[in-house]
Each structure stands twice: as C-alpha cells, then as structure tokens.
Design a protein around this nucleic acid. Structure first.
Length: 1050
RNA sequence: GGGCCAUUAGCUCAGGCGGUUAGAGCGCUGUGCUGAUAACGCAGAGGUCUGUGGUUCGAGUCCACAAUGGCCCA
C-alpha cells in the first residue's frame, strides 16, 4: 500500500495524532523560523485574562487570529506570534475576594495587601491550563512559551517609562472623577456592577428656597432628591432656552420654570417672564455655610441637561456628587465642596451631622430646613436608585481623586490616525469608533485598588514636589534601600521612600494603581521591554499590519492602543483591524455564563473535531456579524465541506492503492489530458485566485464560499463523472490522467485549506506527499500557499462545462416531470442551441450528457418551433445601456405582445425591427431573452437562456433495457442485504407473478442477460430453485417479479 | 436621548457594479444511487426581499422617514 487508508470519519483521534506530530517536530516554530529574513507581517495579540474559562467568543477570536497569520506565513511572510496575558485589574481582585470571603477593601487590608496580591498572582493563571488546552487543541498557533505578561517587572517598567513620557509632556494630571461608589465596601463600581443593583425605592423629594442676593424676599425654587448634597451646593443650573417666571405667592417671590408651575399647586401670580439666559450669573446666598468656597461660587449657570419633566427647572449643582455637576463645575471653574469622607459620613466641618451617614442625615436636614424657613415643600418620590450588588448599601455618586491622561489635548491627532486605519467592517471607523473618539473625555487612569501596575508617582511630604519614576534604575538611584529583587507591585513599592531632589525630604508613593486597559494598550512597546532592551524587535515589529478582536474592544483595547501609540510613536499601532461580532446561541441570545447558554468548546472539539468548529466559524456569515453558534451549525459545516473533501480523499486513496498509482512515476502535461481533467484543474486555479483575493482583503467568508463550491464541483461532478476512469487496471493514459489530476488537485486543496482547517490539510498532505516524497517539506504548514497558474485557467472550458451542467439540470428536471427515472434509458434529447458556442459545447461533451442522463443520443436543434412556443422579453441590461434606454416600457410591451417564434426567427437571421410611435427600433439577439413553454410530445424544460426536450416515447428495446437495469438494481440490493461479499459469484432465480407479463421479463433477460450477469457477478439466471435463499417480490417497472439468489461455489 | 448594525424561503445566511426568473445550506415532499455507503445525489414546493414614500426606463441593492430587534455611548 502506497498510501494509508484514511479514517472514515473525521475523528478527533486523528487530530490528536497530528497535534502530537506538530509538537514533536516543532512545526509551529519551524513555520516562523523558516521565514527568517523574509518580509514581516506584524501581528499583535490582544491579551486575554486567564482568570476565567475560555468561551466560544474566545474561540472565534483565536480562530480568526490563527487564519490570517497562517495564510500570510504560507504566502512567504514571517509572522511572529507572541502570546500575551492580561493579568491586572478589578475582575481578578473580585475573584480573589470571593475566594477568600472578603467583603470590602477594609477586609483586604486586614487580610494583608502582600498576601492578597500573592493570591491575585496565583489566580491570574488559575485557568491558564484550560486556555492552553483550548488554544492547543484548536490548532491555534501562537507562542505561549514566551508570552508578554502584564504583571512582570519588565512589562511594568516599560509602562512606567511610557507614563513618564506623558508626565514629562504635562499630559498626566490630578483631578476628580465622579464615580458610583459604595461607601461600605470603599470601592467604586463599574457600570456593569451598577446596572445589576438598581432598585425601586422611596426617597425624599424636597423643594428648597435659595435666597437671591440683592432682591428682597425673592427666591429660586430648587428641587432635589438628595438633601444631603445641598451642603455642597456651589451653583444652580438653568436651561438657556427654557422659559422661567417670577411668581408672587403670598408675600414672597419665587422663580421657576414656566412649565413647572404645577409645583405651586395652581396658586400665585406670574409677575415676570424670563428665558434661562436672563438668569445666568445671578447670585444667591449659600444655603449651608459649613465650608467656605475657595473660588467664586453660588450663582446661576447654564446646563444642557436641565429638563422640565420634573422638579422646578432649576437644578442644584454639587460637583462632588454628580457627574453632570462635576462636568459643569469644571467648565465654570466652580469649587468642589466635599465634606463627606470615603466612609460616606459627614466630616467634622458639618457640625450638626458630623460622623453621620449622609443618607441617614436626610430627615434631620429636612427638619432643619423647615425650621429655618428654607423648605418650600417636602414629599416622597418613588424612583429607581442604584445599590451595591454585594452589600446592598445605597451607592453615592462621589467625586474621587483621580489621575488623568489628557487625551483631549491630542484628540485631533488620534482622530487623524484613526482615519489611516483600515477597519473591517468599514462602518466602525466612521461610526462607532469615531463617535466614541469625538465624545472623548480625559482618560481616568488611576484606580484605588491593589492588584495593578502601581502609579509611579512619589510626592514629597515636605515640599509637595512630585516625581514620576521612569525605570527600576531611577527607583534605585533615588530610593533608600531598594533591593535588587524588588517586585514592582503594592505593597513593596509603597514602602520605598525616595529622597526629594528639591528639598531632600522624604517622598512617598501615591496610593493608586493604574487602569489595566493602559497595561494592554501598552503592549506594542511593553511586550519587548522597550526601550530597556530589544530595540531591534520594536523597530521591526511596529506597527502591526493587522489585529483582530471582538467589538467590545472598540472602547477597550482598540482605543487604548491608539491613544498610547499616537502619543508615543505619533502613529496608530495597527494598520488593519478586523472587528468580530458577538457570539449568540441558536436563538440569537448572547452567550453568557449567567444565562447558562455557553457551549463547551473542548467537548465540541472532541465531538466534531477542531477543523469542523473552525470551518463553522469562518463560513456562513461575515466575522463582524452577530453569529449564532450551535451544534447543528458545526455538524452542517462538517458535512458540507470537510465530509465531502474527506470522501474524495478516501476515494482517491482506495483506488490509488488498488492500482498502485505513484504520481512521481508518471508525467502527462495538462494540455494532453482529457477535457474534464483540464476543467477541474482550471477550476482549481480559478479558486486559488479567488481565495487569495478574498483573504488579502480579510474577506474570510468569501474565501470559504469559493472553497465549498470547488469541493462540491470536485466531488459531485469531477469524481462522479470520472469514476469509471479510476476502475481500470490497465494503466492507460486516460486513467493515469485521472489519477494524476485528482492527486494534484487534492494536494492543492490541502494547501489551500491549510490555514482554515489545519488538521485535515495536514492529514491529506502527509499521506499523499510525505509518504512518497522524502524531500518534500514535512508539514503542509511549511509549504507555500498555492499560486494560481493563469495558463491553466480556461474560461471557455469552464463556461462550456457550466453549460453542460445546466443542460443536465434541465434534463433531470424533465425526467422528474415526466416521471421517468434515470434508470430507464431514453432514446433522445434535443437541445435547442442558437450559437456556435453551445453547439460546440454540446458536440464536445455529448458523452457526458449521455452517461449522466442515460440517454442514447443527444442532438442539437436549431429550430424549436415544433418543440415549443417562445415568449420574448427584453434583455434589460443590454437595452438599458443603448440608445433605446428611454423606450424600455414600450419595448417590453411590444415584445410581450409579439409572436415569440417570429421574433426568434428574425433574430436568428440578424435583427428584429419594429416601430414604436413611428420610430424604428432594431434589436439584435443579445437584446432579447427568449423563454420556451412546454409542448406535449416532449418533456420540455427551459431556464430562460436555453431549452431542452426529452423524447418521452419508449421503444420495445428501451423498455426491455429498463427492465434489465431494474433487475440489476434489485439483485444488487439483495446481495448486500444477504451479506454477500463484493466478489462472491451468484446465481439468480426469478418468477414473474403476472402471467401476461411473463414474456416481457423473459425477453429482457434474454436480450440483456449478459450485462445483468456482468453487473451482478451472476453466473446463471433462471428459475428459482430450492437451495436459494428466501425470495422477495419486487415491482419491476410495474411488473411484479419474485427474485431469489444463491451463492455459486464456482 | 445619541451613534452604529440588522431585518431576504419554515430555520441559518449569501446577494461585491442598480438590469426584471432573488440564491445556498438545513428542514419538508418526492425520487435516485448502492463498487466513495452508519454516506450521498437529484428534483419539487416554499419569497408582497420589515413598512411607507422618493430617485431611475428599471430598486433586495441608492435616498428619506418609520417599525422591530441587537450592540455601544449617555
């Protein structure tokens, strides 16, 4: 045996053997090192967090991130693939807190920061083994032995260096950020966490009088649901274009929005009208003067968020406790009054309520307002308010101290760089991403947490000088007793005291760590520990030619890369980016742990094979669309593509072994091979061209479509039609051509499919090539990607075959309609042809049609008027381009009314001329489409471009042959059913049940006995005898016949 | 509230330059093959291309508005 017999099914076992082979022979590493010195295709890996199990979404990402680098490698590029791990951040901390049963930051500090971050470090790689297993088993090639890891000293050192660049350029500053904050846990919550904790509650709803300066007895009427924030009030906001009124009510004057007059309960009298603009700048008296503002405060400003849906249309502004408040506060340079501690309690300055939790102070504040006469009205309101999902405390919006990167200072450059990126799909570029960039605010990069890259800023206790440490060397130089194995994490770096360069005082580090998005966004530089080492790597491998992640990275990684790249390297760190869509279940519901609809990838790999999972992710729909992912989709794609390919491959091996065919011993130039061989070779080269074109544009799904079509053509046309050529054992040229052709095409498709389905590709290649050619590369993944040979593409031949297969489709349809099964031979098919191309094609490929349709003769007829009736229609495409463009409707109705057969005759002899509104119109045959309608004598089919007619009449001869073919069919079935071996000889007994039909069957056996015997390996056909097995009654084209068979011992 | 995407056969999806019979796979019905066989082939039925307007000789495709669903941002 020259070739190994392939497994019948795509087995997981085969894939696992291939994995072992890759591992043992280091094929991945070789695929990279082989291309040393070649043009580089730069790929950046977006680092996943390994503190959870991999999800189908990750498999999709990995699959795409594997395909393109494999393709580019085979195209001759060197594609380094350094893996990465994102290791810092709140999710990791939360996981550990849960594991340790800790409930808040106090708990962590009690537990000990050092012990805590040790646990974090362990937890980060808790699922690494599972990730490795998924990545390896999926055939996703990436260098996991030398990954970049965001929590290593090297990585952190580069991040510090990058931060220093921002610092030196005054792009890193201190400020405040209003965050949803849980005072009990002492932590800010992410928007996702906040969304989990909304509840409907009853809160106070109070209207308060703010005394206007310089006007007696006149007040702004202000509404709030958080009375405790009134102490921090610094301004009132109105809508610029909203109408306001002054109302005289009893002895006082109140100002509020005109459309909110209902607040006054229908009382009072409007004495003056304003628009918001008129009120701007008006000053009022501070409500609670516990804290004296350091800047100008307590006047009216404009706010675009002011609405008149509730309240009074005048909004109280406390920048310390509201996002909008903070923003307008900054815009108007208002002070921030924040007499509330991180524990949510008032500080000592607020004498009456010091050390009281702010929300609990509300009733007392209301009481106090009432006593002082500031309260206009007080009630309760039901609304939704966020609570901590962990401890159920009401969240406070709280301005926390934070560090920012001044991204808005180079926003224009960022947007300019975005313009140079190729986005796939394109709409993200000008849509979602640009929208995000245009609404950019400064990037709050600090986090009041433990497990993260420490913000390397030290502050002098004495003179307040700030210093940003930009390297370990710098740390050692300025710090006291920095040990050589210092770990750049809390609490170790917290303990380091620097000597102040200004006053020699002691400097301590600020407590914050940084946002882990900065970590991952720094990878283009930090993965190399640049500039401390690997300068060359950085120079050669920046920027990336291509990156690819899911759509949720638009404001994540895609953004952080672009920001850091633009600032540091003045360019986008990536040139092309493919954005992947969401993974949903069969019902279009997003796959998520909480919904319990996540498919387990490893079991899918085991059940269907990684190739099948991969193909199902590449095909079907474009990668950026939302993708429904479910088992049937995988088994479908397995059957549709891999199963078909596997079948052809097994077929080849089966017969190549029987014939002992060795492709290296024969050489038949393609030009000398039969047409059908040249056809499939042409189709192959065409497919190569299209697949390359698609992949060069990252249009993955187009490539899969072309490949599926090709494999279908190969199996269901080429092999089907050529089957008999593989059965001969005589080694004639025709048979050898077939073997050579199928061999070459199979090896070609193995290479073509290698980046997509690397396992089956390797299997085919190793068996068909390495088995007999020791000089060939040991793996398909070390080969070059097929290049389409233009000289082997024969468009005319492909068109001709296309024409023939259309004739076949029509022929089969005609048979179906006339209820004539293919087993029943027919005498004649007429094909109506009007041009020399079809006439040639028909003549040329007559035998294909005869075999495929079981028809004795195929003839071309020029004139079909006796067969069918024609209806003429304009060829819109042609006419629309010509001078009669404007007359289309008239032409259409004329042609519909005309005698189609007449029109056809005219066209055949040149042109068809008629008049519309007295003007002549001349049409050529390409301007008109003719459609045929059926007639009775024939079974006629037409597809608009051509027509065929099957002669339905059966001669005695055809009828008998039909019986014979039917008998063969039943006998073969019985052979199989009774478990005979393929080579067993038999004798056949028959008995006709309908006496008057006896003669028909007898005659059929007489005339076609030899061919029946040949096909069924029968030695004799006669009456049923007693030694034969159980007889069975069959319907042989309407005649009931009993059949029995017995083994002949020779 | 803002941005973007989607809506095509019972289901999952193609439809690249606007051209008149809108395609594929699955499912369904019928049927074939039995020397690739626990497969597979073929045929048929099945569509007001979400709706309404518009541009055009011609719209699934371009434009406007609307509806429904999704993602993101507030």
């Amino acid at each position: 045996m020259l070739f190994d017999k392939p497994e019948n099914t795509v087995s997981a076992k085969r894939e696992e053997e291939i994995l072992e082979f890759w591992e043992k022979e280091n094929i991945f590493k070789k695929s990279v090192s082989n291309r040393e010195g070649a043009k580089k295709f730069v790929f950046f890996e977006g680092p996943p967090t390994a503190n959870g199990t991999p999800h189908p979404g990750h498999v999709l990402t990995k699959a795409m991130k594997d395909l393109i680098p494999r393709y580019k490698t085979m195209c001759g590029c060197q594609v380094n693939r350094k893996a990465g791990w994102d290791t810092h951040g709140l999710p990791v901390e939360l996981e550990v807190e849960k594991q340790l049963g800790l409930e808040n930051k106090q708990g962590i500090e009690k537990y000990g920061i050092e012990a805590f971050i040790k646990k974090c470090r362990e937890s980060v790689f808790k699922y690494e083994a599972q990730w490795r297993e998924m990545v390896t088993r999926g055939g996703f090639w990436i260098d996991m032995d030398d990954p970049y890891i965001t929590c290593t000293n090297n990585y952190i050192e580069t991040v510090w260096w990058m931060l220093s660049k921002f610092w030196e350029d005054d792009k890193l500053y201190e400020g405040h950020k209003v965050v949803p904050y849980c005072p009990r846990c002492g932590t800010a919550l992410s928007s996702h966490e906040v969304a989990q904790g909304y509840k409907e509650v009853e809160d106070p709803s109070v209207y308060v009088r703010f005394t206007i300066k310089g006007q007696t007895n006149t007040y702004f009427l202000v509404w709030t649901t958080t009375p405790w924030t009134l102490i921090s009030n610094v301004a009132l906001a109105v809508g610029k274009d909203i109408e306001y009124v002054k109302v005289k009510l009893n002895e006082e004057y109140l100002i509020l929005a005109k459309s909110r007059l209902e607040v006054l309960g229908g009382e009072g009298e409007v004495v003056e009208n304003y628009t918001g603009k008129d009120l701007l700048g008006m000053e009022y008296e501070q409500l609670y003067p516990f804290v004296v503002p350091q800047k100008k405060a307590h006047y009216v400003i404009a706010g675009d968020f002011v609405s008149t849906e509730d309240g009074s249309g005048i909004v109280h502004i406390a920048p310390a406790f509201g996002e909008d408040d903070y923003r307008v506060g900054k815009e108007n340079d208002l002070p921030v009054i924040q007499p509330v501690g991180l524990d949510g309690k008032f500080t000592a300055e607020v004498t009456p309520w010091a050390d009281k939790f702010v929300k609990s102070a509300d009733p007392e504040i209301i009481k106090d307002l009432k006593i002082s006469g500031k309260l206009f009205k007080s009630a309760k309101i039901k609304h939704t308010y966020p609570f901590c999902w962990r401890c159920n405390s009401p969240l406070l919006y709280y301005a926390r101290h934070s560090w920012f990167i001044r991204t808005t200072a180079f926003k224009d450059e960022i947007i300019k760089n975005n313009d140079k990126i190729n986005w796939f799909p394109e709409h993200i570029k000008e849509g979602r991403f640009l929208n995000f960039l245009e609404n950019m605010i400064d990037w709050a990069i600090s986090r009041d947490r433990y497990w993260g890259t420490p913000l390397p800023i030290w502050v002098c206790k004495d003179c307040g000088h700030h210093h940003l440490v930009n390297s370990i060397a710098n740390l050692k130089e300025m710090g006291e007793n920095v040990s050589d194995d210092i770990e750049l994490h809390r609490p170790y770096v917290d303990e380091i005291i620097l000597k102040c360069p200004k006053c020699s005082g002691k400097m301590k580090r600020v407590p914050e760590v940084i946002d882990c998005w900065f970590d991952s966004g720094a990878m283009h530089t930090a993965q190399w520990h640049y500039p401390f080492e690997n300068k060359e790597n950085f120079d050669n491998l920046f920027p990336a030619d291509w990156i690819c992640e899911a759509v949720d990275q638009t404001r994540g990684w895609f953004y952080s890369l672009l920001v850091t790249g633009t600032f540091l390297h003045k360019t986008s760190p990536y040139k092309n980016v493919t954005v992947l869509g969401l993974i949903c279940d069969k019902n279009g519901i997003k796959m998520s742990k909480s919904k319990g609809n996540v498919l387990d990838c490893m079991s899918l790999f085991h059940k269907y094979g990684a190739d099948a999972v991969r193909w199902s992710l590449y095909s079907g729909t474009a990668p950026w669309n939302t993708r429904r992912f479910y088992e049937e989709a995988i088994s479908d794609s397995q059957k549709r593509y891999l199963g078909t390919l596997q079948n052809v491959y097994s077929f080849f091996v089966l017969y190549a072994n029987i014939e002992n065919f060795n492709p290296f011993k024969h050489n038949i130039p393609v030009a000398e091979r039969p047409e059908i061989d040249r056809w499939i070779i042409s189709r192959f080269n065409h497919t190569v061209e299209e697949v390359r074109k698609a992949l060069d544009k990252f249009e993955v799904v187009w490539a899969t479509e072309k490949m599926e079509k090709f494999v279908d053509d190969l199996s269901n046309w080429y092999v089907r039609r050529s089957r008999r050529r593989f059965w001969t054992s005589e080694g004639n040229t025709d048979s050898l051509s077939a073997f050579l052709t199928l061999y070459e095409v199979l090896v070609g498709i193995a290479k073509l499919t290698a980046p997509f389905t690397p396992f089956i590709a390797e299997d085919i290649y190793r068996n068909l090539v390495c088995k007999i050619d020791s000089s060939a590369p040991e793996s398909v993944h070390l080969c070059d990607y097929p290049v389409s040979d233009q000289s082997l593409i024969d468009v005319e031949l492909e068109d001709r075959m296309d024409f023939i297969s259309r004739v076949v489709v029509l022929g089969r349809a005609a048979r179906n309609e006339a209820n004539l099964k293919v087993r029943q031979p027919l005498s004649e098919m007429k094909v109506v042809v009007s041009d020399s191309f079809s006439r040639n094609a028909l003549k040329n490929m007559e035998h294909l049609l005869q075999e495929e349709l079981n028809i004795k003769s195929v003839s071309a007829v020029e004139d079909s008027s006796s067969l069918m009736r024609y209806v003429a229609k304009p060829n819109f495409r042609n006419i629309g381009k010509g001078p009669y463009k404007g007359l289309m409707p008239q032409i259409k109705s004329h042609l519909e009314g005309a005698d189609g057969n007449e029109v056809r005759k005219h066209l055949e002899s040149g042109e068809y001329v008629f008049e519309i509104d007295g003007k002549p119109v001349t049409l050529k045959s390409e301007d008109v489409e003719l459609q045929a309608l059926a007639s009775d004598e024939y079974s006629v089919q037409s597809d608009g471009k051509m027509s065929i007619a099957l002669v339905k009449t059966l001669s005695r001869e055809l009828l008998l042959e039909g019986f014979a073919r039917e008998l063969v069919n039943k006998i073969q079935f019985m052979r199989k059913e009774q478990g005979f071996d393929i080579v067993d000889r038999i004798r056949v007994g028959y008995e006709v049940c309908d006496a008057d039909k006896q003669v028909d069957i007898d005659e059929a056996v007489e005339s076609f006995g030899e061919s029946i015997k040949e096909d069924t390996l029968a030695l004799k056909i006669g009456a049923i005898d007693s030694e034969m097995g159980e007889s069975a009654e069959w319907n042989i084209n309407g005649i009931n016949v009993k059949l029995a068979i017995a083994k002949e011992t020779k």
